[in-house]
Design a protein around this nucleic acid. Structure first.
Length: 335
DNA sequence: AAAGCGTGGTA
DNA sequence: TTACCAAGCTT
Protein backbone atom coordinates (compact mmCIF):
# COMPACT_ATOMS: atom_id res chain seq x y z
CA UNK A 1 0.00 0.00 0.00
CA UNK A 2 1.43 3.40 -0.99
CA UNK A 3 2.35 5.85 1.76
CA UNK A 4 -0.26 8.28 0.49
CA UNK A 5 -3.10 5.85 1.02
CA UNK A 6 -4.24 7.51 4.21
CA UNK A 7 -4.25 10.88 2.44
CA UNK A 8 -6.25 9.50 -0.46
CA UNK A 9 -8.71 8.00 1.94
CA UNK A 10 -9.11 11.26 3.87
CA UNK A 11 -9.57 13.26 0.65
CA UNK A 12 -12.27 10.86 -0.42
CA UNK A 13 -13.85 11.07 3.00
CA UNK A 14 -13.89 14.88 3.01
CA UNK A 15 -15.79 14.89 -0.27
CA UNK A 16 -18.63 12.68 0.86
CA UNK A 17 -21.64 13.13 3.09
CA UNK A 18 -21.10 12.68 6.81
CA UNK A 19 -23.27 9.97 8.24
CA UNK A 20 -23.17 10.53 11.97
CA UNK A 21 -25.12 13.18 13.87
CA UNK A 22 -22.12 14.68 15.69
CA UNK A 23 -19.74 14.61 12.74
CA UNK A 24 -17.77 17.80 12.21
CA UNK A 25 -16.03 19.19 9.18
CA UNK A 26 -12.23 19.37 9.01
CA UNK A 27 -11.03 22.37 10.99
CA UNK A 28 -14.05 22.36 13.30
CA UNK A 29 -13.60 21.87 17.01
CA UNK A 30 -13.57 18.20 17.95
CA UNK A 31 -16.98 16.75 18.84
CA UNK A 32 -18.17 16.45 22.43
CA UNK A 33 -16.65 13.44 24.17
CA UNK A 34 -20.09 12.67 25.59
CA UNK A 35 -21.58 12.53 22.10
CA UNK A 36 -18.75 10.42 20.73
CA UNK A 37 -18.91 7.97 23.61
CA UNK A 38 -22.69 7.62 23.51
CA UNK A 39 -22.86 7.10 19.76
CA UNK A 40 -19.95 4.66 19.71
CA UNK A 41 -21.57 2.53 22.41
CA UNK A 42 -24.86 2.61 20.49
CA UNK A 43 -23.05 1.66 17.30
CA UNK A 44 -21.62 -1.53 18.79
CA UNK A 45 -23.08 -4.26 16.55
CA UNK A 46 -25.79 -1.82 15.49
CA UNK A 47 -26.30 0.00 12.21
CA UNK A 48 -25.95 3.75 11.73
CA UNK A 49 -29.53 3.95 10.43
CA UNK A 50 -30.84 2.39 13.63
CA UNK A 51 -28.67 4.51 15.90
CA UNK A 52 -29.32 7.94 14.40
CA UNK A 53 -32.81 8.66 15.74
CA UNK A 54 -32.13 6.92 19.02
CA UNK A 55 -28.99 8.97 19.57
CA UNK A 56 -30.88 12.19 18.99
CA UNK A 57 -33.55 11.21 21.50
CA UNK A 58 -30.92 10.37 24.09
CA UNK A 59 -29.05 13.65 23.89
CA UNK A 60 -32.27 15.61 23.78
CA UNK A 61 -33.44 13.90 26.95
CA UNK A 62 -30.03 13.94 28.66
CA UNK A 63 -27.92 16.74 27.14
CA UNK A 64 -24.86 16.06 29.29
CA UNK A 65 -23.18 13.07 30.84
CA UNK A 66 -24.07 14.55 34.24
CA UNK A 67 -27.74 14.55 33.31
CA UNK A 68 -27.50 10.96 32.15
CA UNK A 69 -25.68 9.98 35.34
CA UNK A 70 -28.50 11.49 37.40
CA UNK A 71 -31.26 9.60 35.57
CA UNK A 72 -32.93 6.61 37.25
CA UNK A 73 -31.85 3.23 35.85
CA UNK A 74 -35.37 2.43 34.70
CA UNK A 75 -35.63 5.50 32.54
CA UNK A 76 -32.37 4.80 30.76
CA UNK A 77 -33.25 1.13 30.18
CA UNK A 78 -36.63 2.27 28.89
CA UNK A 79 -35.02 4.69 26.46
CA UNK A 80 -32.76 1.85 25.29
CA UNK A 81 -35.66 -0.56 24.68
CA UNK A 82 -35.54 -2.06 21.19
CA UNK A 83 -31.84 -1.35 20.64
CA UNK A 84 -30.73 -4.78 21.86
CA UNK A 85 -27.67 -5.98 23.75
CA UNK A 86 -29.05 -4.56 26.94
CA UNK A 87 -25.82 -5.03 28.90
CA UNK A 88 -24.72 -1.96 26.96
CA UNK A 89 -27.39 0.11 28.68
CA UNK A 90 -26.38 -1.14 32.12
CA UNK A 91 -22.73 -0.37 31.37
CA UNK A 92 -23.76 3.00 29.97
CA UNK A 93 -25.33 3.96 33.29
CA UNK A 94 -22.32 2.79 35.29
CA UNK A 95 -19.94 4.59 32.96
CA UNK A 96 -21.89 7.86 33.03
CA UNK A 97 -21.86 7.85 36.83
CA UNK A 98 -18.13 7.16 36.98
CA UNK A 99 -17.43 9.99 34.55
CA UNK A 100 -19.75 12.41 36.32
CA UNK A 101 -18.14 11.58 39.66
CA UNK A 102 -14.63 12.24 38.40
CA UNK A 103 -15.71 15.40 36.57
CA UNK A 104 -15.00 14.55 32.92
CA UNK A 105 -14.07 11.82 30.48
CA UNK A 106 -10.52 10.49 30.64
CA UNK A 107 -8.58 11.76 27.64
CA UNK A 108 -6.40 8.76 26.81
CA UNK A 109 -7.16 5.39 25.29
CA UNK A 110 -5.66 3.47 28.22
CA UNK A 111 -7.77 5.33 30.78
CA UNK A 112 -10.92 5.13 28.66
CA UNK A 113 -10.38 1.40 28.32
CA UNK A 114 -10.99 0.99 32.06
CA UNK A 115 -14.54 2.34 31.88
CA UNK A 116 -17.41 -0.16 31.81
CA UNK A 117 -18.60 -0.95 28.29
CA UNK A 118 -15.47 0.39 26.58
CA UNK A 119 -13.47 -2.41 24.99
CA UNK A 120 -10.52 -2.15 22.61
CA UNK A 121 -12.55 -0.71 19.77
CA UNK A 122 -14.61 1.89 21.64
CA UNK A 123 -11.75 3.16 23.79
CA UNK A 124 -9.62 3.67 20.69
CA UNK A 125 -12.47 5.30 18.76
CA UNK A 126 -13.27 7.81 21.52
CA UNK A 127 -9.58 8.60 22.07
CA UNK A 128 -9.03 9.21 18.36
CA UNK A 129 -12.26 11.01 17.48
CA UNK A 130 -12.87 13.09 20.60
CA UNK A 131 -9.29 13.70 21.73
CA UNK A 132 -7.17 13.36 18.60
CA UNK A 133 -5.01 10.56 20.00
CA UNK A 134 -3.32 8.37 17.43
CA UNK A 135 -5.15 5.27 18.64
CA UNK A 136 -5.46 2.17 16.46
CA UNK A 137 -9.15 1.74 15.71
CA UNK A 138 -10.10 -1.69 14.39
CA UNK A 139 -13.71 -2.76 13.99
CA UNK A 140 -15.02 -5.36 11.56
CA UNK A 141 -15.16 -2.79 8.74
CA UNK A 142 -11.53 -1.80 9.20
CA UNK A 143 -10.49 -5.43 9.51
CA UNK A 144 -12.25 -6.30 6.25
CA UNK A 145 -10.71 -3.34 4.38
CA UNK A 146 -7.24 -4.30 5.56
CA UNK A 147 -7.74 -7.98 4.81
CA UNK A 148 -8.64 -7.04 1.25
CA UNK A 149 -5.95 -4.46 0.66
CA UNK A 150 -3.29 -6.89 1.88
CA UNK A 151 -4.90 -10.01 0.48
CA UNK A 152 -5.39 -11.87 3.77
CA UNK A 153 -7.57 -14.91 3.18
CA UNK A 154 -7.65 -16.25 6.71
CA UNK A 155 -10.78 -15.78 8.81
CA UNK A 156 -10.59 -12.50 10.74
CA UNK A 157 -10.35 -14.29 14.07
CA UNK A 158 -7.04 -15.83 13.03
CA UNK A 159 -5.67 -12.65 11.45
CA UNK A 160 -6.35 -10.33 14.38
CA UNK A 161 -2.75 -9.60 15.32
CA UNK A 162 -1.58 -9.17 11.76
CA UNK A 163 -4.44 -6.82 10.98
CA UNK A 164 -3.74 -4.72 14.03
CA UNK A 165 -0.09 -4.32 13.02
CA UNK A 166 -1.11 -3.29 9.52
CA UNK A 167 -3.66 -0.84 10.92
CA UNK A 168 -0.94 0.67 13.08
CA UNK A 169 1.25 1.08 10.03
CA UNK A 170 -1.57 2.77 8.06
CA UNK A 171 -2.79 5.18 10.75
CA UNK A 172 -1.53 8.72 10.14
CA UNK A 173 -0.24 11.11 12.81
CA UNK A 174 -2.64 13.79 11.65
CA UNK A 175 -6.41 13.39 11.85
CA UNK A 176 -6.37 9.88 13.30
CA UNK A 177 -10.04 10.20 14.27
CA UNK A 178 -11.12 11.15 10.75
CA UNK A 179 -8.94 8.36 9.40
CA UNK A 180 -10.68 5.82 11.61
CA UNK A 181 -14.08 7.04 10.53
CA UNK A 182 -13.03 7.13 6.91
CA UNK A 183 -11.95 3.49 7.10
CA UNK A 184 -15.23 2.52 8.73
CA UNK A 185 -17.27 4.50 6.20
CA UNK A 186 -15.32 2.84 3.42
CA UNK A 187 -16.10 -0.60 4.83
CA UNK A 188 -19.75 0.24 5.32
CA UNK A 189 -20.45 1.89 1.97
CA UNK A 190 -17.89 0.69 -0.60
CA UNK A 191 -15.77 -2.19 0.67
CA UNK A 192 -18.93 -4.06 1.67
CA UNK A 193 -18.91 -7.72 2.73
CA UNK A 194 -20.83 -8.62 -0.41
CA UNK A 195 -20.79 -6.80 -3.73
CA UNK A 196 -17.85 -4.48 -3.01
CA UNK A 197 -17.80 -1.30 -5.11
CA UNK A 198 -14.17 -1.33 -6.19
CA UNK A 199 -14.95 1.13 -8.99
CA UNK A 200 -15.51 3.90 -6.44
CA UNK A 201 -12.83 2.89 -3.96
CA UNK A 202 -10.03 5.35 -3.12
CA UNK A 203 -7.81 2.40 -2.12
CA UNK A 204 -8.44 0.32 -5.26
CA UNK A 205 -4.96 0.98 -6.59
CA UNK A 206 -2.73 -1.75 -5.22
CA UNK A 207 -5.53 -3.61 -3.46
CA UNK A 208 -4.68 -7.30 -3.59
CA UNK A 209 -8.26 -8.51 -3.25
CA UNK A 210 -9.35 -6.32 -6.14
CA UNK A 211 -6.43 -7.51 -8.25
CA UNK A 212 -7.47 -11.09 -7.56
CA UNK A 213 -10.75 -10.50 -9.40
CA UNK A 214 -12.87 -11.82 -6.53
CA UNK A 215 -12.55 -9.20 -3.77
CA UNK A 216 -15.61 -10.50 -1.97
CA UNK A 217 -13.76 -13.73 -1.18
CA UNK A 218 -11.52 -11.85 1.29
CA UNK A 219 -11.49 -12.52 4.18
CA UNK A 220 -12.77 -16.08 4.57
CA UNK A 221 -16.24 -16.18 6.17
CA UNK A 222 -16.40 -17.39 9.71
CA UNK A 223 -18.07 -20.72 10.42
CA UNK A 224 -21.67 -20.28 11.44
CA UNK A 225 -22.77 -21.92 14.67
CA UNK A 226 -26.17 -23.55 14.45
CA UNK A 227 -29.01 -21.75 16.12
CA UNK A 228 -31.17 -24.11 18.19
CA UNK A 229 -34.84 -23.61 18.88
CA UNK A 230 -36.25 -22.98 22.34
CA UNK A 231 -39.79 -22.69 23.59
CA UNK A 232 -41.36 -20.74 26.39
CA UNK A 233 -44.59 -19.27 27.67
CA UNK A 234 -45.56 -15.87 29.01
CA UNK A 235 -48.61 -15.10 31.08
CA UNK A 236 -51.28 -12.56 30.28
CA UNK A 237 -52.95 -11.17 33.38
CA UNK A 238 -55.48 -8.48 32.47
CA UNK A 239 -57.54 -6.32 34.80
CA UNK A 240 -59.42 -3.10 34.02
CA UNK A 241 -57.65 -2.61 30.71
CA UNK A 242 -54.19 -3.13 32.17
CA UNK A 243 -51.76 -6.05 32.01
CA UNK A 244 -49.26 -7.26 34.58
CA UNK A 245 -45.61 -6.60 33.74
CA UNK A 246 -42.45 -7.50 35.61
CA UNK A 247 -38.77 -6.66 35.34
CA UNK A 248 -36.31 -9.33 34.26
CA UNK A 249 -33.28 -10.21 36.39
CA UNK A 250 -30.25 -7.95 35.92
CA UNK A 251 -28.16 -10.73 34.42
CA UNK A 252 -28.88 -12.82 31.36
CA UNK A 253 -31.28 -12.46 28.48
CA UNK A 254 -32.98 -9.05 28.25
CA UNK A 255 -31.44 -8.29 31.64
CA UNK A 256 -33.16 -5.55 33.59
CA UNK A 257 -35.84 -4.99 30.97
CA UNK A 258 -39.62 -4.82 31.37
CA UNK A 259 -41.33 -8.10 30.44
CA UNK A 260 -44.46 -10.22 30.51
CA UNK A 261 -44.29 -12.58 33.51
CA UNK A 262 -43.53 -16.25 32.94
CA UNK A 263 -41.12 -19.11 33.63
CA UNK A 264 -37.72 -19.70 32.04
CA UNK A 265 -37.71 -20.54 28.34
CA UNK A 266 -36.74 -24.19 28.71
CA UNK A 267 -39.68 -26.15 27.30
CA UNK A 268 -39.12 -28.97 24.81
CA UNK A 269 -42.12 -27.90 22.82
CA UNK A 270 -44.79 -25.29 22.84
CA UNK A 271 -48.02 -26.00 24.75
CA UNK A 272 -50.95 -25.59 22.35
CA UNK A 273 -53.52 -23.40 24.04
CA UNK A 274 -52.30 -19.85 23.80
CA UNK A 275 -53.56 -16.33 23.22
CA UNK A 276 -50.79 -15.67 20.76
CA UNK A 277 -47.52 -16.99 19.43
CA UNK A 278 -44.41 -15.08 18.48
CA UNK A 279 -41.18 -16.40 17.07
CA UNK A 280 -38.12 -14.33 17.81
CA UNK A 281 -34.50 -14.75 16.76
CA UNK A 282 -31.87 -14.06 19.39
CA UNK A 283 -28.15 -14.21 18.80
CA UNK A 284 -27.68 -17.86 19.67
CA UNK A 285 -31.17 -19.39 19.61
CA UNK A 286 -34.64 -18.90 18.20
CA UNK A 287 -37.50 -18.64 20.65
CA UNK A 288 -41.15 -19.56 20.12
CA UNK A 289 -43.08 -17.83 22.88
CA UNK A 290 -46.71 -18.65 23.57
CA UNK A 291 -48.84 -16.17 25.46
CA UNK A 292 -51.30 -17.82 27.86
CA UNK A 293 -54.27 -16.13 29.45
CA UNK A 294 -54.18 -16.43 33.25
CA UNK A 295 -56.80 -15.47 35.79
CA UNK A 296 -56.46 -14.54 39.43
CA UNK A 297 -53.78 -12.46 41.03
CA UNK A 298 -50.15 -12.47 39.84
CA UNK A 299 -47.48 -12.92 42.49
CA UNK A 300 -44.08 -11.34 42.82
CA UNK A 301 -42.92 -7.88 41.90
CA UNK A 302 -44.52 -6.04 39.03
CA UNK A 303 -47.02 -3.41 37.99
CA UNK A 304 -50.27 -2.97 36.08
CA UNK A 305 -49.55 -1.34 32.76
CA UNK A 306 -52.60 0.20 31.03
CA UNK A 307 -52.84 -1.21 27.51
CA UNK A 308 -53.54 2.28 26.19
CA UNK A 309 -50.05 3.25 27.31
CA UNK A 310 -48.28 0.00 26.49
CA UNK A 311 -45.91 1.91 24.25
CA UNK A 312 -44.52 3.67 27.31
CA UNK A 313 -43.61 0.45 29.10
CA UNK A 314 -40.17 0.14 27.54
CA UNK A 315 -40.69 -3.44 26.39
CA UNK A 316 -37.93 -5.10 24.37
CA UNK A 317 -38.96 -6.30 20.94
CA UNK A 318 -39.90 -9.88 21.89
CA UNK A 319 -42.52 -8.72 24.40
CA UNK A 320 -43.63 -5.74 22.39
CA UNK A 321 -44.48 -8.10 19.51
CA UNK A 322 -46.16 -10.57 21.84
CA UNK A 323 -48.43 -7.84 23.19
CA UNK A 324 -49.16 -6.51 19.69
CA UNK A 325 -50.10 -10.03 18.63
CA UNK A 326 -52.54 -10.51 21.50
CA UNK A 327 -54.16 -7.14 20.87
CA UNK A 328 -54.50 -7.92 17.16
CA UNK A 329 -56.23 -11.22 17.97
CA UNK A 330 -58.62 -9.50 20.31
CA UNK A 331 -59.46 -6.93 17.65
CA UNK A 332 -60.14 -9.77 15.19
CA UNK A 333 -62.47 -11.40 17.69
CA UNK A 334 -64.30 -8.15 18.27
CA UNK A 335 -64.75 -7.53 14.55
C1' DA B 1 -11.07 -18.33 25.02
C1' DA B 2 -15.33 -19.49 23.76
C1' DA B 3 -19.79 -18.53 24.53
C1' DG B 4 -23.54 -15.36 25.80
C1' DC B 5 -25.79 -11.37 24.46
C1' DG B 6 -30.82 -8.32 20.25
C1' DT B 7 -32.49 -6.48 16.53
C1' DG B 8 -33.49 -4.89 11.87
C1' DG B 9 -32.05 -4.56 7.03
C1' DT B 10 -30.74 -6.80 2.86
C1' DA B 11 -30.25 -10.24 -0.75
C1' DT C 1 -37.86 -17.52 3.58
C1' DT C 2 -33.59 -18.26 5.24
C1' DA C 3 -29.06 -16.54 5.91
C1' DC C 4 -26.01 -13.19 6.70
C1' DC C 5 -24.40 -9.28 8.93
C1' DA C 6 -23.65 -4.81 11.78
C1' DA C 7 -18.68 1.43 14.32
C1' DG C 8 -18.21 -5.39 20.25
C1' DC C 9 -18.05 -6.27 25.35
C1' DT C 10 -17.92 -9.37 29.22
C1' DT C 11 -16.87 -13.41 31.77
Amino acid sequence: MPASAAEQLLDHYDCHARSLPWRSMPGDAPPEPYHVWLSEVMLQQTTVATVKPRFRRFIERWPTVEALAAAPDEEVLHEWAGLGYYARARNLIACARTVAARGDFPRTESELRKLPGLGDYTAAAVAAIAFGERAIVVDTNVARVIARVYGLRKPLAEARKEIRELADRMTPDRRPGDFAQAMMDLGATICRPRNPGCGNCPLASGCMARDSGTPESFPAPKAKPERPKRYGVAWWFERDGAIWLTRRPERGMLGGMAALPGPEWNLDRLPTPSLALVSHGFTHFTLDLGVIHRFGTPDGEGWWQPLERIGEAGLPTLYRRAVEEVIARKDDLAA
